[in-house]
Design a protein around this nucleic acid. Structure first.
Lengths: 336, 336
DNA sequence: TATGTAAACTAAAACGATTTCGTCATATAT
DNA sequence: ATATATGACGAAATCGTTTTAGTTTACATA
């Protein structure tokens, strides 16, 4: 079928060992031979097959990525997509391709089976249900892995500084004069818990009460849920003056709901987002939000994982926090 | 290292040939042996390695995907991401994984080299610069390929019905009473050309003039560009009453620009989008737009490509059009 | 001249599967 | 009883590389 190392060797009058060595940067090859081989390879369109090489070396230069966007939610999950993008770019620069891990393949294998099937060198959990047995089995396997936005005991984890970032955001709202601040939670995860703690602690530090009815449950990245949550809070007998939404997409929903209810933002009510998506700075009022450093998170994840795979250093385990940035925006301000 | 077919064979007291045959559904295996092998494999955690299998069969069950989102534009490219998602899901259901083709790997290989390196069975061009030599080289190689949203002579192509969809959209605007309609073009591609033709033809059919200054160039999926284009058109001495934007993201920019200019939509000016992204139906006024059937496009692409790879049928070449759907929305209406 | 050394190259055994022929019972047909 | 067919399994070559342990040649040294 294709052109193999054999063809190059034949054309050069060399053994396949020599050709292989050229492509693997062995030093016991003369400069002439090296250029000859490289040139001939180029000429006849040869490129070493990663498959054969992987079989021999047991290294696929492939990273498994678990990216369980609850598909077809329609909204491309802004935060995770951006992290994934950075991770992918960094991995590629280091010579690794990405394979999405799923259980759709063939006779529906498990995540771990899929990883073994594809011989991935490592796995990145970008967006997953960390409580499902299948994911746990994967994390606890012998395959090196890195986890984004969740803490797994003893594993390499990359997280936003959710706690202190939320402190910043809450403090900002308070400094804008708000005392009655509501908090809309996303799905129950360790991230949600960290953010809620940051919120609670800051409120307490400022001696501000948080009635139970000001903490409600909703979902991440679902504008419709944002509409819903906002309307619920805005029609409370004792309406909060500021609402912290789970993220920017829900905050956009909230903004919309406010408009429908003839409430001006921020004159009548303030709204905070989280994530720092682009669109949030395009709408009016611009969202007050925390911009998560998705780029750094993705890069870090790829680097740590690959270093572990290549055993370059041993200080790549543990939890790494990436700070976010407060974007003041315009959706939080003093009451009229 | 890992568990191989040898381990299963040993444990079962069978030859590796027999074990292999079980996994490949050969018929000359007794039912008892089959279940024995399967059960033992399960027990010791064996899964056949795609790498070894690929080396022997020359089939990687991997599809290369060219997805050249001009990265870091920030806006995840809604249309292409959704197509990609459908393509990926369909491919996975048929037993294929996805590998992104790029030239970042190692010593920067070309797209074609990357494909050979990974032994992909076929390639899908989802989002690419079709005029670059590298892409052309790829398309003209012997690897089966399918192209989305562009026509490549003699290749399998999947496109939206841009021409007639734009006719629908334009006709709708006209029926709302508009006579002065402007058209903002995205980057110059065959898709852009088809849409512009659909627009022009419909205008002509309705005996409506299109001044040159009503056709302007902009870019796809860039809200800021949308703001820019809108402001330009809205400050024209003879301002159009309706503006057709390249897509929903730019239309959202236009909506924002209108608000800034104190123009009510659609009372003062009408705006059309294209794509049918979710957010477009969440903002007020809801966008009048064409919803492209990304799901069908992605599915079709995967199916056609895989059928070609597996040589199931021969009628998978040529151009396939997928109709879009007019979403009336609220951003187009009669003038005040 | 004999010996040691270094540079440049090669032979051949893997890696983990697939697949083509065989082989060897046993069952059926003649 | 002999020939043939069938069912169930195995031997071994092979896919395209990598890598170890040579081999060969040239040259320097004793």
């Amino acid at each position: 079928m294709g052109i193999t190392i054999r063809d190059v060797a034949a054309k050069c009058g060399l053994s396949i060992s020599t050709v292989s060595k050229v492509f693997n940067n062995y030093t016991d090859i003369s400069e002439e031979t090296r250029t000859l081989v490289l040139r001939t390879a180029q000429n006849i369109g040869y490129y070493p097959s990663s498959i054969a090489s992987a079989l021999k070396t047991n290294r696929s230069y492939n990273l498994g990525v678990l990216f369980q966007a609850e598909s077809h939610s329609g909204v491309t999950h802004s935060f995770f997509s951006l992290v994934l993008d950075a991770l992918k770019t960094t991995a590629e620069a280091l010579g690794y391709d990405i394979t999405f891990i799923n259980h759709n393949i063939r006779n529906s294998m498990t995540y771990l089976e899929h990883c073994r099937y594809r011989n991935v060198d490592g796995i990145a959990l970008v967006c997953a249900n960390f409580y499902s047995p299948e994911v746990i089995e994967l994390v606890e396997s012998e395959i090196p892995c890195v986890i984004i936005d969740h803490i797994f005991e003893g594993k390499t984890c990359i997280l936003s500084e959710n706690f202190s970032d939320m402190q910043k955001l809450t403090q900002y709202a308070i400094e804008c004069g708000h005392k009655k601040i509501a908090f809309v939670k996303g799905e129950q995860t360790s991230v949600t818990t960290a953010r809620l703690s940051g919120f609670r602690e800051t409120m307490q530090k400022n001696r501000l009460a948080v009635p139970n009815e000001y903490i409600i449950e909703s979902r991440y990245d679902n504008p419709e849920e944002g509409v819903h949550a906002f309307k619920h809070l805005a029609t409370l007998p004792d309406r909060p003056t500021c609402i912290i939404m789970p993220d920017d997409n829900t905050a956009l929903g909230a903004l919309q709901a406010a408009a429908e209810m003839q409430l001006r933002v921020p004159q009548d009510i303030s709204i905070c987002g989280y994530d720092g998506i682009r669109l949030g700075q395009l709408v009016r009022p611009r969202l007050t939000t925390i911009r998560q450093d998705t780029r750094t998170m993705g890069e870090l994840a790829a680097e740590k994982l690959i270093k572990r795979i290549e055993r370059i250093s041993t200080c790549d385990e543990g939890v790494f926090y990436v700070p976010g940035q407060l974007i003041p925006g315009e959706s939080v301000g003093a009451l009229k």
